[in-house]
Simulated assay, not measured.
Amino acid sequence: MSFAAKAPEHEIPVPRVLARLVGGDPARAVWVNRLGGVTWSIAEGTPRHRYLKWAPAEALHLDPEAERRRMEWAARWVRVPRVLDSGEEGTGRWLLTEALPGTSAVAPHWSADPGPVAAEIGRGLRVLHEALPCEECPFDWSDGERLERVRERLAAGEGPERWAPEHRGLSVEEALARLENPPAADLPVVCHGDACAPNTLLGDDGRFLGHVDLGRLGTADRWADLAVASWSLEWNYGPGHEEAFFEGYGVAPDTDRIAYYRLLWDLS
């Protein structure tokens, strides 16, 4: 997931400022990331089940308000969580959403047999790409917009030691030269923006149900999503599941576009 999100290793209490959003319901931290963002599951297993996302003020690249706008726009065409509340105060920002039925594609019972799950992740991404109207989308996730972020990070001194192992053999100059020469666009769509495996939900029957974590949703070439979604299968399930993913989506792998968009994801 974005910013190396993972399950927390210890209990994380809900900030006092958000107590009114939780009420007396039990809250369990389910995701944390290296920028200090936390997601809690509230009243899990009840009709009041919801999720609370918190971004500390210093985490400028975590923007719950941007995610709220994107979810409310996308909800006209696809199944995404319903926004219940959002806001900010001095120490951070939050987003409260209603829980969708179903479970993350990386839940243990799905991870035990990832072949069919990988195919459903691909099918679900195709559903998203075909349903959202690119010409009406007010949000941008294009190569040019993201390349500006790459330049900012490199100018601030970030280097290969922070990159994925696949890219650490490149110098900063080599990586930037590759990113400044993008492949020709294949098919512009509204991309999810973080189409990693945990952000696909499956129903009890194992079929695609919906998407979560839409804070980067915007128009881009479809390979911006496809490259990262297929890459995430190895992070979450181990090697050997990309073929099922591409079959589920209905497209043959494009090695040049995959390489470009994985590098862009890594550095941006």
Rank of each mutant, 00 (worst) to 15 (best):
E11H: 14
C137K: 09
R69K: 13
P8T: 08
D266L: 03
E98I: 02
F208I: 00
A5C: 04
G37A: 07
A4E: 15
P133I: 00
D85P: 10
V106T: 12
V228A: 01
H129D: 10
R149Q: 15
A5H: 05
P47C: 08
W141M: 08
G157E: 05
V189T: 06
A43I: 09
P47E: 13
L209W: 04
P182S: 03
C196Q: 14
L84W: 07
S111V: 03
D140S: 09
Y51V: 04
W94V: 09
T97A: 05
E148A: 15
E247A: 15
P183L: 00
E243D: 14
L18C: 10
W265S: 06
V150I: 05
I121A: 14
S142G: 14
E158K: 13
R82G: 02
D194C: 12
R126E: 06
H10D: 13
E234G: 08
V78N: 03
G37Y: 02
R178V: 12
A27L: 01
A220Q: 13
S2K: 14
Y51A: 08
G206S: 08
A177E: 14
A4V: 12
D186W: 13
R76I: 05
R50I: 03
Y237L: 04
W223V: 04
W77N: 11
D194R: 07
V83H: 06
F245H: 04
H61D: 15
V189G: 04
C191L: 12
A156Y: 12
G206V: 01
D85N: 04
R70N: 04
G203C: 01
V78E: 04
P101K: 11
T200Y: 11
E136T: 05
S111W: 02
A55T: 11
R70L: 08
E135H: 11
P101E: 07
R162Y: 13
V80L: 03
P15M: 00
H10C: 13
T91G: 13
N199D: 07
L125P: 02
P188I: 10
S171M: 08
L147M: 09
A229K: 07
D186A: 15
A27Q: 05
E242F: 05
R76V: 06
H167Q: 10
W235Y: 14
R222F: 06
P8M: 02
A185T: 11
A224H: 12
A57M: 07
L21K: 01
H109F: 02
M71E: 04
F245S: 09
W73S: 08
H10Y: 14
E145H: 12
C137S: 11
G238Y: 02
R222S: 06
L267W: 03
D221F: 03
E173M: 02
A224D: 08
G23M: 12
W73Q: 01
G90P: 00
T200G: 05
P116G: 00
G24F: 11
E135P: 06
I258Q: 11
P26H: 00
T255R: 15
D225E: 12
R28V: 14
A66T: 11
R149I: 14
P182M: 05
D213I: 03
E136S: 12
V78A: 10
A107C: 03
L264V: 07
E145L: 15
F246G: 03
L60S: 14
D85T: 00
A119T: 01
G248A: 03
W94Q: 04
F139I: 06
L214M: 15
W223G: 00
